[in-house]
Design a protein around this nucleic acid. Structure first.
Length: 196
DNA sequence: CCCTGATTCGC
DNA sequence: GCGAATCAGG
């Protein structure tokens, strides 16, 4: 049944879809009975090869922008982020408890327990509270390679700072924070008894 | 490995 | 003219 051929109608569909930026495989699927190679081959024979630029328009989804006008290049000034914003630490060699999962927004809300304490050893927890007092409370700009970059508080408020104590060489945090950030997998497992 | 289009060449 | 196979690239 069906000698699948390039009828006027099918060619029209091809032209339309191709000009709309659809990929050869998409068109082939739509037409049915042909492979993307067939579509590409036909496209070339029809002379409507390159539509724009070259090959990348992988986009296209539910919402089709329908670009009918010219493209307007507007200068976008990206926000200049800190030199080495450490909020998302370095390489948790093992697992590492994420630092005080810096809350996105929680204005006016105090943040007593920084990390989800449930996973931290009592010792570390104690030091944590104590070190908070000694913390130098540095801001982003004051951080250096040798300062502890453990974030404290809500970044959205002015009640936000970094520990700033002497960091362990090679690590982004001071000893106390390294202890909570880089916990061996085993240690964490031990501490969590229940669950699922 | 998934995908894209481009080319080749026997049919 | 057609399109599978192949190539070149992301």
């Amino acid at each position: 049944m069906s000698e699948m051929s390039w009828t006027d109608e099918r060619v029209e569909t091809l032209k339309t879809m191709w000009s709309e930026g659809k990929s050869a495989s998409q068109i082939a699927k739509e037409l049915g009975g042909v492979t993307r190679n067939a579509v590409i081959g036909k496209v070339h024979r029809l002379g409507l090869s390159n539509r724009v630029g070259g090959a990348e328009p992988q986009e296209e989804a539910a919402s089709a922008p329908e670009v009918v006008s010219e493209e307007v290049v507007e200068p976008v000034v990206e926000a200049v982020v800190a030199p080495q914003a450490p909020v998302r630490p370095a390489q948790p060699r093992e697992p590492a408890v994420a630092p005080p999962a810096v809350r996105a927004k929680t204005p006016g809300q105090p943040q007593p327990p920084q990390p989800a304490n449930a996973e931290i050893s009592p010792e570390a927890l104690a030091n944590l509270a104590e070190v908070a007092k000694r913390a130098r409370r540095l801001n982003l700009m004051q951080l250096t390679e040798r300062t502890c970059k453990w974030p404290v508080g809500d970044p959205a408020t002015d009640d936000f700072w970094f520990c700033g104590l002497a960091a362990v060489p090679g690590k982004p945090y001071c000893e106390t924070h390294v202890a909570v950030a880089f916990q061996p997998m085993s240690a964490r497992r031990d501490r969590r008894g229940s669950g699922r």
